[in-house]
Amino acid sequence: MPDNDKRYTEHAENTEKHGKQKRKIHAIPLLPCFPCTNYFFRLLLYPLLAAPLGVFILYAFSQGWFFPAPFPETWTSAPFARVLSDPRTLSSLRDSLLIAFAVSLLSLVIGYPAARALGLRQFRGRQVVWLLLYLPTVVPPLAIGMGLNILFLQIGLAGTIPGIVLAHLVPTLPYVTFTLAGAFARYDEAYEFQAWVLGASASRTLFTVTLPMLAPSLAVAALFAFLISWSQYLLTLLIGSGRVITLPVLLFSAASGGNPVTIAALALVFLAPPALVIATTIRAPRDLSHNL
């Protein structure tokens, strides 16, 4: 695999600059672009993108919404409050948050040194490392979960939160490592050297020079890890053995045969973190798409 450096830099540029990039406007539009076709296109696209989310809001705040009525007749937050105060929802919410925070923290701590080596060093076998770290992003979670199921049963990790955290590291580590490797590819070690020359200790250099300079990428990487772990269903199901019920597991079982109001309310709770991420960063990277 040639051009690893190029790949990292490109990747980094995509994640970093995406927001600031000055957009190039085509001098000649590609499709007939009268204002009306543009508005028509948006009129079509935006509702389609928002439809599944709009439907959750309609159902979650409805009461006694019977068949032919196009909209709920009474709006109420009662079903939403009921779902939110259900002990099963609360415990799944707690487990989901605990797992996702632990996974993001661990992925950062483990991914950081790996990313530093990949981004700053040239060494033999670098491409093999790249390939090994890339593998978990394409091996189906189905195969990973089914394979680990028995092993984790034997070593006592099945059905435990540490077991699930460990399993979630498989899909999150590659993303965190590659994101940070991209940041390191643009990072100049001379700043650390300068701090060292001026007499700063290693930990002071880390906390006052390195980490602040990498802060944006660290935040993006942590968000990646959090979202991937938060939306993980199959790995949690197969490793949790039905004993750890996270929010997606609860939502999935509700969707397989629950009532629409409960499903919609749970879905809205489940959606809160991704929605928050969109509201704050406004640039959910496309690399994430197939791991949520």
Partner: peptide, 28 residues
């Protein structure tokens, strides 16, 4: 391709898990 608003709308779709999308379609 020329509009930041459009790419923003497309981007926001990516942060939502496939499962949520499927459940939305189920209700829809």
């Amino acid at each position: 391709s020329n509009s930041r608003l459009d790419t923003l709308a497309l981007n926001s779709n990516l942060a939502f898990p496939h499962m949520i999308w499927a459940i939305g379609l189920l209700l829809l």
